[in-house]
């Protein structure tokens, strides 16, 4: 070859360069093939690339399991007293904290039917958070009905805005797949995750309501509004689902509004005759205890509401709320 190479301008050097390039392609593709080779094949159900996220723990174990029950019909007053009895909001919310409040805005019903979180209560809570030094407060829920109308008609949207909180209405891109460890249902399920970005404190605020399927909808059932997808399928085994919700969400504290209780026809109610003035405000770091007490407002025992015992068994809190010696004010 070399004898004729100069004729065509072809040199050994050219050949070596070419061989090197060919060798590089072969080596690169060989390496890549070896690297990405998959001898087993794909799994039955993949999560399509996106890795599942896990909701962080927002609870403050140092605060212990506490609960306070305050009598009165003025929510602004009672929520202040209730939080004071827990040790004051300052012990939970500190300077620079970024707070997320999960309300119950499930239905596009007026505030008066008490199917949703009370707007005055929400506004006061937001005010308290800022007062305690929070750098941001956000409010969110993934309602059953159309989100825009829900936040508008319940007065929650207005209350949040005027109090200076950011409102997160659900959007498809806000959801990420989550899997609750050991869960049977919340497996690779869409979770309303975007509002949680950068958040370090979580407050749940829910009214006490009758619920056709689960017996009662209170603090724990309220986390249902963090799920996306075709969640109504969970109504087939609602008690175990609520248990999984209680495992999934570890809030800083919760407010259970028992000022007006929806005794019948829940969770939507619709008529004032469904309501009863029970005039109690509950604040707690223990969501199971709060719900267990809430059950008494509905005239139900915890045996009527299996999710309470299930949640307790799963370690989410205390069903026998007297055990954590609730602070009672005005009773």
């Amino acid at each position: 070859m070399s004898d004729s190479s100069h004729d065509s301008g072809f040199t050994r050097r050219d050949f070596i360069i070419r061989s090197t390039k060919a060798g590089a392609i072969i080596a690169a593709s060989g390496l890549l093939s070896y690297w990405l080779h998959d001898s087993k094949g794909p799994k039955a159900i993949s999560d399509s690339g996106e890795s599942a996220i896990l909701l962080p723990d927002f609870s403050m174990p140092a605060m212990g399991r506490k609960m306070s029950i305050v009598a009165g019909d003025d929510r602004v007053r009672t929520v202040n007293l209730a939080l004071k009895a827990l040790g004051g909001i300052e012990t939970f919310i500190r300077g620079g904290d970024r707070v997320l409040i999960k309300v119950n805005a499930a239905f596009a019903t007026p505030a008066i039917v008490s199917a949703t979180t009370n707007p005055q209560l929400l506004a006061e809570l937001i005010r308290l958070c800022y007062h305690a030094g929070a750098s941001s407060v956000a409010v969110t829920d993934n309602p059953i009905n159309d989100p825009e109308s829900c936040f508008a008609l319940t007065g929650i949207g207005e209350a949040a805005r005027t109090a200076g909180a950011r409102l997160f209405l659900p959007r498809e891109s806000f959801f990420r797949a989550t899997t609750v460890p050991g869960a049977a249902y919340i497996v690779n399920w869409p979770l309303l995750y975007e509002p949680f970005q950068g958040i370090n404190k979580l407050i749940g605020v829910a009214p006490v309501k009758d619920h056709h399927r689960s017996g009662a909808s209170m603090v724990m059932k309220n986390w249902y509004g963090l799920l996306g997808g075709r969640r109504n399928i969970f109504h087939q085994d609602i008690h175990n689902l609520i248990k999984e919700l209680a495992i999934m969400v570890k809030p800083t504290f919760v407010i259970l509004d028992g000022t007006t209780t929806m005794m019948t026809n829940g969770p939507t109610g619709g008529s004032l005759s469904d309501l009863k003035q029970t005039n109690l405000m509950i604040a707690a770091t223990d969501q199971v205890a709060a719900d267990a007490f809430g059950a008494t407002l509905l005239g139900r025992s915890i045996h009527d509401l299996p999710f309470i015992a299930k949640a307790e068994a799963a370690g989410a809190g205390t069903a026998d709320y007297e055990q954590i010696r609730p602070e009672r004010v005005g009773i």
Binding site: A22, I25, I26, S33, L36, H37, D38, K40
Partner: peptide, 20 residues
């Protein structure tokens, strides 16, 4: 898919021969 499934590794043989 970001992966090379099982017997598709054979393609490497064709690829190497083609490069050469």
């Amino acid at each position: 898919t970001g992966s090379l499934y099982r017997d598709l590794l054979w393609a490497l043989v064709t690829l190497v021969l083609t490069v050469l």
